[in-house]
Amino acid sequence: MKIDKKVANQALIQIDETIDSLVKQIELLSYVNPVNIEEEKARFFSSKYLTDPVFNYPTINFDKFKLHRALFAQPLELIKDVEIKNLYEDIVYEYSGLIQCIETIGDGKKFYYNSLRCFGTPTEKDVENAKFILHFEDEAKDDLIFKPKYSAKQAEVFFKDFSKQYDFTYTIEQSDKISAIAMVLNNIKTLVLNSNHTYSDNEIAVLTNHEIGVHMVTTMNGLMHPLKIFSHGFPNNEETQEGLAVFSEYMSNNLTIKRLKELAYRVIAVDSLAKGYSFSKTFRLLHNQYDLDREEAFYLTLRAHRGGGFTKDYLYLTGLKKIYDYYQEGKDLSVLLTGKVTLEYANEIESLIKKGLAVSAKHITDAFAENKNTNKKVDFILRSLK
């Protein structure tokens, strides 16, 4: 796309392109997922939940020091527009933090403190919201929509069919090395399905809207801008992106009490890190006190404790509440679909569009066209969260 030289000087474009080339190497989720999950799960279960797993992680394939140095060497003072300069300062600090996260994966407290710096930790209010959700009875477990039915290979068919409504293509892969049951890798436009998981009808409905309807939509929209920050991500974009993704589940009438409780348990698990809980203690909290079956308790604990203490998981619930309130105020969700952006930068996004440095979202989440939610209990919960 042609850049209007009156709007953006060459320094900004050069800085943006350099940062993009640097941060393409940083996909935190590619490094923080252990490569020996199943072996350590078996060992943990055989120890009667007493011996903490010892996880191994992928090898880091970049020079951490050089990457830090190159980021901070960017001549941001050459950016004439103060608003844009401030945004890029935030971005440099954000990505420096993510590099520190990656370089300390598996190093206990070091990783945890770097994770805290990047993602924060649940507040008292967040924990109260989680406990409020857990008071509700979830749907009957024998409901057919929750019954595991489809292998990862069979699930692929549903994702491909769902994606026909969007004008883009992406790759689908399978892996037994991820803690989630599905995830989008932004930098390689790939949906990864967990080959160890058997998917239910509800999970297919949730994941198609969540992973394709939002995460892949924002991946593809992010590639369309003159500035590449929309693709590699604004500061603290995880909360907004996950909030939008869960909100698409709500709008498509697939957000259940069971799913909300899963997000609440994630907050409880991450809060346990702040309390100094070990892997086994968090697991026993979820398994014994909250009566989760051991498989679910293990994977929730894994998500929170991977790397040495990964706090990101609590942001799904806080993000959902922020997006729900944003929608109820009648604000334009399409601004938040322009890429890997952050709600708190909505004004800056609109400003960049006006300056010719960004474009409006081409791909719009199908679920956002009409609110199809019929679950009054879910509505009550979302309205009541503090």
Rank of each mutant, 00 (worst) to 15 (best):
M1S: 10
A8F: 15
Q14K: 15
L22W: 05
V23R: 06
Q25W: 02
E27R: 06
L28S: 06
L29G: 07
N33C: 05
E38V: 06
F45P: 02
K48L: 11
T51R: 13
I60D: 00
N61V: 03
K66I: 09
F72E: 14
K80Q: 14
D81H: 11
V82L: 14
I84G: 07
L87D: 10
E94A: 15
S96G: 14
C101K: 13
F111D: 02
S115A: 06
G120K: 06
V127D: 04
E137W: 03
E139K: 08
D142H: 07
I145W: 06
P148V: 06
K149F: 04
K149P: 10
K153T: 12
F158A: 06
Q174T: 15
Q174H: 14
K177Q: 07
S179R: 04
L185E: 12
I188K: 14
K189P: 00
T190C: 07
S200Q: 05
N202E: 12
V206K: 13
N209P: 06
H210I: 00
H210F: 00
V217A: 00
V217L: 01
T219E: 03
M224N: 14
L227R: 04
I229Y: 11
T240F: 06
V246M: 10
I268G: 05
V270W: 01
L273F: 08
Y277P: 09
R284H: 09
R284S: 15
Q289Y: 11
E295P: 06
E296Q: 12
L300H: 13
F310R: 00
T311C: 09
D313P: 05
L315Y: 02
L336R: 03
E344C: 11
N347I: 11
I349M: 04
S351K: 15
I353D: 09
K354H: 12
L357T: 01
A361V: 07
N371E: 07
T374E: 14
K376G: 03
V378R: 04
V378E: 02
D379W: 02
K386C: 13
K386D: 15
